[in-house]
Design a protein around this nucleic acid. Structure first.
Lengths: 192, 192
DNA sequence: CGCGTAATTGAAAAGTATCAACACTGGTGG
DNA sequence: CCACCAGTGTTGATACTTTTCAATTACGCG
């Protein structure tokens, strides 16, 4: 649910000065729209710290959250290859520190640096191989099954992510989420 | 819904003799299981002709169809990178002609041949960028909306793919599919 | 304290699945 | 040539799940 890619962060911090300059560090506060859906951008983004949601909004005002991104997750790289407008939005949930790298430098690094090429390939593969099972499970099980599984994997999610976002991630209404949490007797863990 | 990747087929047929031998041609009849879920394989498969379903089955007997694959779609490449058992099955719907290439040769080609590297990257990107919107739409709309959209994009689907498979692709029951088809007055086109 | 955002809850309406019976089709063997 | 069978498709009635709507409460922050 909350994805990370430490390899990529390590790779960046170990880059020699010259190539490290490709990556520009910025930060933003909670709720900032880091990248806007349906616009064109020249940047690929990589989360350094914090949590953001990668979400897809349709005309009816429905928000579908694909994943929550944390350390090392990159975003906007698909647009380097297919040269289209970005097809989903990236919105900060907590305060976020991130890198951005231009399409040109991204492509250059991809062609010149075999390690980077492999890391990018693997990250695409990982994203792909996680999406399938997630949607399969989500479609074929009841809401309760899905919530139960989610809270097993991630017991503290209520302390980190707003309920509406959790509901949008699961593709259900807030009402249904609340009912199921009651039935399953799941409560927000105390933070001490 | 039925994916193709002509670039990859062209690439293969233009390969020089030596590298073309990497790709072994085979064929099978309808309903053959080309690749079995949760097993390990040393092959990457590429459809040359026909249609197969890429599906994910769970313990409860539910089948979730990720996509229907046609000319040029490759399958099993994720396992080259993450070295796990294949996580979904590939089952022929029509008679199918396909290539297979070993993991070793796939990797070799990926490293030695820049065109191939790009084609593989792009195919991953395409798969990724199609999955998100599909599930977003599927989750946030009614069954009828989904069916209407599907039959707009693909009016002849009833002539090609069994109804149960269409239902599994949409994540609904056959009963619901039939009811909605009635309501929408969608009928199987005559084949002449 | 007051405001806006987030969370909670009940009742009614809408959407979907489940179950079971039946129809159609093409192929096979007597 | 007909009877049978398996696979595929069709349909109605009912039960269940989930959403919608609306009213209310809790919380954090200036």
């Amino acid at each position: 649910m909350i994805r990370k890619n430490i390899d990529l962060l390590n790779f960046i911090s170990n880059l020699k000065e010259e190539e490290h300059l490709y990556f520009i560090e910025e930060n933003c506060t909670s709720k900032t729209i880091i990248a806007q859906q349906d616009t064109r951008t020249k940047w690929v983004y990589i989360i350094k710290q914090g949590i953001a949601k990668c979400s897809l909004n349709d005309d009816n005002g429905n928000e579908f959250i694909q994943e929550f991104f944390s350390e090392g997750m990159k975003f906007g790289e698909l647009e380097v290859f297919n040269n289209k407008a970005i097809y989903c939005a990236m919105i900060a949930i907590t305060n976020v520190v991130y890198y951005k790298i231009s399409h040109e430098n991204f492509t250059a690094l991809l062609n010149s640096n075999k390690t980077f090429n492999t890391i990018v390939l693997k990250s695409l593969v990982t994203k792909l191989s996680e999406k399938g099972p997630r949607f399969a499970f989500q479609q074929n099980r009841t809401i309760k099954d899905n919530i139960f599984k989610l809270f097993q994997e991630f017991p503290t999610v209520l302390n980190i992510i707003p309920k509406q976002d959790i509901a949008n991630y699961l593709g259900i209404t807030l009402r249904s989420l609340n009912r199921s949490l009651n039935d399953l007797q799941i409560v927000k863990p105390e933070t001490e």
